[in-house]
Design a protein around this nucleic acid. Structure first.
Lengths: 233, 233
DNA sequence: GCACTGCCGTGAATAATTCATGAAATGCAC
DNA sequence: GTGCATTTCATGAATTATTCACGGCAGTGC
């Protein structure tokens, strides 16, 4: 089921929106500030955000910009809740990368309709459309969306290792141990970095904004793809 | 203008794809089943196929195999439309000779982009610029684009062995075992290298930049060609 | 906010493999 | 022995793997 994150400093508003969405079968996550939201999304991202435009410390627009800057959430629909009718706010909201806005006060039906509409659009335009990575271990061959990659031996081993557990975190240490067979504590992190770098150049459409091989600062790397392992005799 | 054939049992999907492609200036032919498609292509072949992977009676993969078996359509690009769940389907699609796949639901932009890409590749590489290598095992003769090669016995065996699985990797060890019958671990890699070298001099247009027999550093050699094995009684 | 610390991305330099190539040596049929 | 095919040897070139260096950014603590 789709998961929606609500970001608002007003507890009452959080309660209200959560109730409305839950009744429609959505899973709801709450965040009471922009920082809270960013922290929660560092691990797992929701399918849609509902964000209060006006909040102390970090306002909704700033939060939106930050979410858009992260590859993980760069395409996730964002719906703003705006208070006053000051059109400046609305313009900023959309310019910062927001997809829609709802003026307060609003009726539940409107909220539901907009949420559904954006979830549907998002499902259509990808978001669900995880890229497909095909690996043929017996032949040292790999394909990205049917385009064959020419990888070196180490590159292939590294990719294969990470693809044995896609969507999971692989620390530099794990990789040095699993791919290079170095004992724990031995091996240079720059080695991994460089091969990740080379892999990205071959795999990613836009190597500057990696979509498939993503970094988790201080923790390691994650493969975001549907992986098909092909044994093909 | 380029002509594209859409094969799908779903009329709505046919309409949709046709509309999208027509707007881009392509000529469109429709087929509502694999049999229909085969019948229509017996006279005239399109420049590209868009085929639904899942259809009743004859599914897309079967159709693809049949198209590939016919010389007229053996090189025509084939793009599959696949449901987004079954990963087996995608593997089958590519293994059966498909060139690409698009997961449903898809956005028109994506369809157009892929169609264009394959049309361009196909047009660029001429009727598919993969060179044609013909082998007549019973007579120890081989032809490169209708030019007969004068090969020695070892050269012929080596070429034949690699051509039994074109586009696949053959490690030096495999070759020593398969062609020379050396047990594993015996035999000199330089032996293979030299015969590869001699083969290239006879096969390649530009032996300095091998197009047919390519090296994969650290892993072996690959034959990049469409291989026709001719038993010619 | 603001500076600090450590991690990441990147290009360049260096080391380690593997490959290509020509020449020489060996084997084989006549 | 002669001529040809095959194999071995030696060396320079090419590719790949690893290390080093540095700038920038993220996360953290104040």
């Amino acid at each position: 089921m789709y998961e929606i994150m609500i970001v608002d400093d007003d507890i009452q508003m959080l309660d209200m929106v959560e109730l409305v969405l839950r009744r429609e079968g959505f899973t709801v996550k709450r965040a009471s500030s922009g920082f809270d939201a960013l922290e929660q999304t560092s691990d797992q991202t929701p399918d849609l955000f509902v964000i209060d435009a006006m909040m102390p410390e970090m306002d909704g627009i700033t939060l939106c910009r930050k979410l858009r800057a992260h590859p993980q959430t760069s395409n996730t629909p964002i719906i703003f809740l705006t208070g006053n009718t000051s059109s400046n706010n609305v313009v900023d909201a959309l310019n910062s990368g927001g997809d829609d806005f709802i003026r307060k006060p609003f009726v539940p039906r409107e909220l539901i309709a907009r949420v559904r509409a954006h979830i549907r659009r998002s499902a259509l335009y990808g978001e669900e459309n995880v890229p497909i990575l095909r690996i043929v271990p017996t032949q040292f061959r790999a394909f990205m969306e049917s385009r064959e990659l020419t990888l070196t031996r180490v590159e292939f081993d590294l990719l294969k290792y990470m693809c044995s557990a896609p969507h999971k975190l692989h620390s530099t240490e794990d990789l040095l141990a699993g791919v290079w067979q170095y004992p724990k504590g031995v091996g240079d992190a720059a080695l991994v970095r460089n091969h990740i770098h080379n892999l990205r150049r071959k795999i990613e459409d836009d190597p500057e904004r990696p979509a498939v091989i993503q970094s988790r600062h201080g923790r390691g790397y994650v493969v975001k793809a549907r992986v098909l392992v092909d044994d093909e005799a």
